[in-house]
Design a protein around this nucleic acid. Sequence first.
DNA 1: CTGGTGACCTGGCTGC
DNA 2: TGCAGCCAGGTCACCA
Length: 271
Amino acid sequence: MPELPEVETTLRGISKKILNKQINSFEPRTEKLRWPINKNLKKFLKNKKVCSAERRGKYIILNLSKGHLLIHLGMSGKLRVFNKPTEPKKHEHWDINFTDGWTLRYTDIRKFGALIKIDTKPDQHKLLKNLGPEPLGNSFNGEYLFSVTRKKTRPIKNLIMDANVVTGVGNIYANEALFLAGIRPRKQSRRLSKTNCEDLSRAIRQTLTEAIEAGGTTLKDYTNASEAPGYFKKELRVYDRGNLPCLTCGAKLKLIKQANRQTVYCPVCQN
DNA sequence: CTGGTGACCTGGCTGC
DNA sequence: TGCAGCCAGGTCACCA
């Protein structure tokens, strides 16, 4: 579910509601999500203040008065902040309760998300230290993409979905960006021209930016921190449209399986 | 080093 | 209706 725009939308939704608040208690209701939840986390979080919140790729980092908390939403995770504690339902795996009565609650049907305490500098954590540049940042551009595609034999879609090449581009937006750039997903990375790389980096930036402005994509059940759906779905041109006509030329969109993921492209518009 | 695959987990949908 | 089988937005760990 959550790709970069959904994570960004979530972060914006929770930030102002939790900033500068002090943590009263942490209540886990599961032993583990993707990894076991650190047993010292209750103690670690007690009385800590949330100084700032930021995003790195699809990770949310809460910077505390001492230490950091790393949150990943996996495939189905959601964060919500509310001030009237309700009885936690199934799949609502943890709460961070603040001293003013507000609660940050995590819901995740598939338990692919993560909650990790970090004592050192976050960017040196093994999950973060190898991440590629932010697709919306200045260091991600055609020149960068050109340099990392040289000598790479793997398909370009696999490459841009590799978080160590560029972080935050998931399946939906990889499909969309490749369509926008007119490049076939299976094209070998090293075969991309300089122009291809410039088009693709621009397409990735544009796709993500538009999705953030729309509040993320809602496919099945994504909602933002206020439980509102995202409105980007109506903007999707290829994802989830296999065998339907291309919105540009009318040709039947190809649906293939690539790297175990649904991949859709237009055989006419993309080369 | 590079690249491909399995695994994690649950629910929803399809088709028999 | 029931149920087996397949699929899903992510990505780490492991293997060749």
